[in-house]
Every structure is written in C-alpha cells, then in structure tokens.
Design a protein around this nucleic acid. Structure first.
Length: 626
DNA sequence: CTGGGGTCCT
DNA sequence: AGGACCC
C-alpha cells in the first residue's frame, strides 16, 4: 500500500492536508503554487462546497450529545463537552476505587509514573474520552484526538500534544508547564492577530511576559474585563462554561472571485448564492427574519480584507415562501431585496470591483416560537406547540457515506471534553480530534505514528445496562432512543411528559432507533436540558462558583403561578435575573458572583436563550439519524 | 494567490 | 455595521 499526499483546496489555497503531506512540509493555508512546488505529486480535492463537512460535523456533535447534552461546537471540527456529571456518576458508582487508570497519554509524564487513583476524576474523564472517540470511530468512521483538562482552554491546548488520533490528559501540577510551553502569546486561544500586536506594543511577547505584567497597566490598554481575561488565559485560567451550541444562529453562503464589476454579474452571483442558501434554509425549517448582503471590494491598498454589509428585515410573506418550499419565488423576491442592499453600498454608475459576495440569513425563528417582542422568555415555561413541519423529515443529508468517491482527502475533527469537580475546582474537558477520510476509505491513512494507546476496550457507552445506576422504575421503561444518562437528570415533570403516551407514541420508533436522545423533539425538554448542567441540589457552593444562582426560594421571591420553581432554578443566572426583574421583585437576592461573564448584556443572552428554546424542532435537522 | 464558514462583542 | 475571535 502506498500513501497519497493529499490536500483540500479552496480556490488558490490548501486549507488542510493529510499527515502524509504534512511530513513533506505542507502546512495549512499554504498557497497552491507553493504546495505543488514542494510536492508535485500532491493530489488536491476541491473543498469549496462545505455541505458534506457540515453534515459530518453535525453527526459528530449529535453523537457526543447523545452521551451528554453539554456540547459546544467550535468550527466544524471541534467540540467541547462538559462531562462533569458523567464523571460524578461514575465516581459514586465505582466499586473499587483502586482500579483507576488513565487512558492514553498524560501530559509530560509516562503513565507508569502516575498514580491514577490520585486523580480519580481525570482518570474517569480519560476513559470517557476514549469511549467517545471509539464511538465516533465505530459509528462515523472518523478518528481524532482528545484532551482532558479542567477547563476549555487547557483541554484545547493539551488536545494537540499528541497528534494524530491520540488523547492526552493534563494533571493539575502541569497546568503551568503547558502554558509555559507555548512559543508565543498568539498560541493562546483567544489571542488573535490584533490582540497579539497590541500586546507586543506593550513589550509582551511570551506567556510569562503577560503573566507578570501588572493588571492595571493591561487594563489601561484593554479595559478591565478584557485585561483580566487575558491575564487569566496566560495563567491557564478559564471560567467560561461549555455552552451548548444548539442549532446555528445564522446560515450563510459566500463565494470569492477575482473580479465582478458589472451589475449583471452581481445579480447572477447573488442569484446563485441565494438559490443554495434558500435550499439550506428550507431544510433547516426555521424562518429567517433578517437578510444580509456582504461584499468585499478590491483595492490596491491592501485593504482586501475588510468587508461591508447591509442588512434588512425579511417581509413575512417572503420568509414563508422559504419555509414552505416555494423556493423559486422566494429567491426572486430575495434577489430584489439583495439588489436594493447592494445599491446602498455600491454606486453602480461608477466603476467597482468586487472580490467577494456573501448572503446570510439570521434571526432564525422556529414555527411555534412566541413572536412577542419582549418578555417572551416566559414562554420557556409553557410547553411548546407542535412543530409546523414534521421534524422527522430528516431526509436531507446523509447521502455521503454510502456512495461516491473513495477519496483520499481527509479532514480533521477535534473534540474536547470537560468535567467539573465542585470540591477541587476541577472541571475537566477533553478535546478529541478526528482525522478521517470523508467517505469510506477507512482508516489507517497514515502510517507509523507510534500509538501508545492500549487497544480500545468496551466501546461505546450509549446503552446503560446497570439497573442500579438508574434506580428508578421510570427509567427502565425508557424508549430505546432515550439516553438514561440524560433522562435521569431531568426534572420529574419533564420526565413524566416524555413518557406520556402522547409523546412516546409520536415517535416512529423504527426510523429513529439510531437517533440521538430525542431531546430536540420537544421544546420544553430542550430548554430544561440545556440549562440543567449543574445539579441544583447537591452543590450549592458549585452554583455560586459558577456564577449560577442558588434557588430563589426565599419568601421575597414569588413566581407567577405558571412557573415551575424547579425549572426556573436550572436556568442560567442571567436568564433568571431577567425573569425576576420582569416580575418586579427586589434584586438584592440576585447578585451574581464575579465569575459571571462581564460585558455580556442581558439582552444578548436573552436572545440566545430564547432562540435556543425556539429552535428545538429544527435542531433535529442538524442531528440526524445515521 | 487569503476559504468558507461560524461566534460574540462593541 | 463593523470588528474581533475560532476552525
């Protein structure tokens, strides 16, 4: 067998390539000419159309969510997952606590030197990560890496330390080491080009420079909150929660080109982009309320990069044509809208030179979503109406693994897992990266990297068979497509609802057997799930640490009669706060801890929460059965 | 000869 | 509407 040097090409760049090619010195984002120069035998695959990557990407996220709902996507090929509760459960049910081992690598250690029982949560986390990677491999045919650490920052960094298809756990005593190992501040996730430049202007280039730089001086340049965040990052501290991503907030389509300079070409390009975007939007099922057109103009002055955009509301009758499948008509109307926006940016009587156009739908609303302008988050507590569109239509995607090219092209996926320990402040995450052929071409693409991992064992843990763990009788009657891990942590009333005949009967069991936890079928379930990260009962101190509110059960808090206090208690603190203020209660009780994200407005979060609640049904489209 | 997506903040 | 960040 020989190994092919291959890469994915978008326009004039190699956006990614396999490890065979990397051994020859190819890197990501190298120009095609440079790449061909380095290795003439390079096989390139066009990658401008992201459809298949997107679909495969959501399958990975879905698979992870079927084990644990707290999954945050980062791009198409990375996921953070907070496995705190899975770890806690295994910890309490582990019979012999001396049987610990750490799966995979341990950062800057050899496994033999580490007493795994000293790090029971990380050890368990490493086993969960191994199981998740194995599930991704066996069910989706993808390989990848994982990092297990107490926060997203560290999980991501440690994920990359043993590269193809391996996993690494970071022990507490090595947090400083891994930060110190970064060759520049630019390597810190969250420090981009601009921030790195501004830091450099302050004389800061290394991690240590930043760690030692006075916070006050930093705050003068970046403002208090950003300064604190930057310092924290340099020290390996990251309080940000794993925020479940849910369905996308926007859908866009774009194309770049050398030159478009006539109104006619503009119109044709817009038409082309909109045709595909409207199709995608239709499959999503939600109705966009906002349309945006973005352009990039050519200018010799290196200003190539900046974009301009104009956006406008989408008239309701146009939006309805999108969701109803009247695509041709929808496109016609939207093209008109787009041209109006275009003329707000470009005077077409003068010469112009465009190098990119982008069309974007945002403010996506589900069919049963409350439309009222404000205070609509109260609708979280009322059970969602049934979807206007059958959620089972999932017919979309899929096509890829069955048919077509046995391509050599590969792409990578990284997934991070997190856990959290209330006592030790340990939250662990793992990152998992998968390297795989998109279709079929099963594995062992490249070669000879020493894989120190022991053979993977038992495989996926989707089905819980231990009756003790799910002690209550209700759980045993769960339909097969419910994950008991997820189910058992739901509030009682939600559990009841899910088991009600009306609900269960609505699930066509045959077509759904491999579908993830059905969570997305019911809006109220989704809301409860998305917000129940922290067990309310066991760890009040954790709630405080995490910036979440304790149960507002004090007499000065009264809920409107239709609000379930248990559901309320599991909402994020800022949503609670907003609700409380809506209900005009006194606010002294609502003080949040310092770890609450600064600079994040209530309205921003509100919109996000409301969106997620409303998006429930369409989320299904992204998490399809295999 | 620098993709085609996404997110959130200001 | 633009800009930062992520992949």
């Amino acid at each position: 067998m020989f190994l092919t040097l291959s890469g994915i090409q978008q326009k004039y760049i190699i956006v990614t390539c396999n490890y065979v090619a990397r051994e020859q010195g190819l890197t990501k984002l190298m120009s095609v000419t440079d790449a061909k120069e380095k290795c003439p035998q390079l096989v390139l695959v066009k990658g401008e159309d992201l459809t298949r990557y997107r679909e495969m990407s959501y399958k990975v996220t879905e698979l992870l969510m079927s084990h644990c709902p707290l999954v945050e996507r980062l791009g198409f090929d990375e996921n953070f997952i907070d496995i705190t509760e899975m770890v806690d459960r295994r910890l309490t049910q582990t019979p012999d606590s001396d049987n610990f081992s750490v799966k995979g690598h341990i950062y800057s250690h050899v496994s033999a030197d580490v007493k795994a029982s000293d790090y029971p949560r990380l050890a368990i986390g490493s086993h969960i990560a191994a199981e998740l990677r194995e599930a991704i491999h066996s069910k989706l045919g993808l390989t990848g890496c994982a990092g297990i650490a107490p926060n997203k920052l560290l999980a991501k960094l440690v994920c990359g330390t043993f590269k193809p298809n391996q996993q690494t756990t970071l022990l507490p005593q090595n947090h400083g080491d891994i930060m110190g190992s970064l060759s520049s501040l630019r390597k810190v996730p969250g420090v981009g080009h601009q921030t790195a430049k501004r830091l450099q202007a302050l004389g800061l280039v290394s991690i240590q420079n930043l760690q030692l730089f006075p916070l006050n001086d930093l705050a003068r340049e970046f403002g208090g909150p950003s300064a604190q965040r930057l310092k924290n990052l340099a020290m390996g501290v990251d309080d940000s929660p794993v925020t479940p991503t849910g369905a996308p907030q926007s859908l866009s389509d774009e194309d770049s080109f050398k030159k478009i300079s006539s109104a006619k070409d503009v119109l044709e390009k817009i038409q082309q982009l909109l045709s595909s975007l409207v199709e995608r939007m239709n499959k999503d099922g939600r109705q966009p309320q906002t349309f945006r057109l973005t352009i990039r103009r050519y200018s010799a002055t290196n200003k190539w990069f900046s974009r301009e955009s104009r956006q406008c509301p989408i008239p309701n009758h146009v939006g309805q044509k999108i969701t109803s499948g009247d695509s041709d008509d929808a496109v016609v109307q939207l093209v008109q809208l787009a041209m109006k926006l275009f003329h707000k940016m470009v005077d077409s009587r003068a010469a112009f030179h465009l190098t990119l156009m982008n069309v974007c739908f945002s403010n996506l609303q589900s069919r049963g979503a409350a439309v009222s302008g404000k205070g609509s988050i109260t609708s979280f507590f009322t059970h969602g109406t049934s979807p206007g569109k059958a959620p089972i239509c999932s017919s979309q995607s899929q096509n890829d693994s069955s048919q077509s090219h046995r391509r050599h092209h590969q792409f990578s996926m990284h997934n991070m897992v997190a856990q959290h320990n209330p006592q030790m402040t340990v939250t662990a995450e793992s990152a998992c990266s998968a390297e795989a052929a998109l279709h079929g071409s099963r594995r062992k693409q490249s070669s000879v990297v020493a894989d120190e991992d022991p053979p993977l064992q038992s495989g996926c843990s989707t089905a819980r068979t231990n009756p003790e763990e799910t002690g209550n009788t209700v759980t045993r009657r769960l339909p097969s497509n419910f994950d008991p891990d997820v189910f058992e942590h739901l509030p009682q009333d939600i559990q009841k609802e899910l088991l009600s005949p009306a609900y269960v009967n609505s699930i066509p069991s045959t077509s759904i057997s491999s579908l993830s936890p059905t969570a997305e079928l019911d809006p109220s379930y989704r809301v409860a799930t998305a917000n129940h990260h922290r067990p309310v009962v066991p760890s009040a101190s954790l709630l405080a640490e995490e910036g979440r509110l304790s149960l507002p059960r004090s007499p000065d808090c009264k809920f409107p009669g239709n609000v379930d206090p248990e559901v309320f208690s599991e909402l994020p603190p800022d949503v609670q706060k907003e609700l409380m203020s809506e209900w005009k209660q006194q606010k002294s009780v609502l003080k949040t801890s310092s770890s609450m994200k600064p600079g994040r407005s209530l309205m921003t979060k509100d919109r996000k929460a409301a969106g997620k609640g409303g998006q429930t049904n369409s989320l299904l489209k992204y998490f399809k059965p295999s």
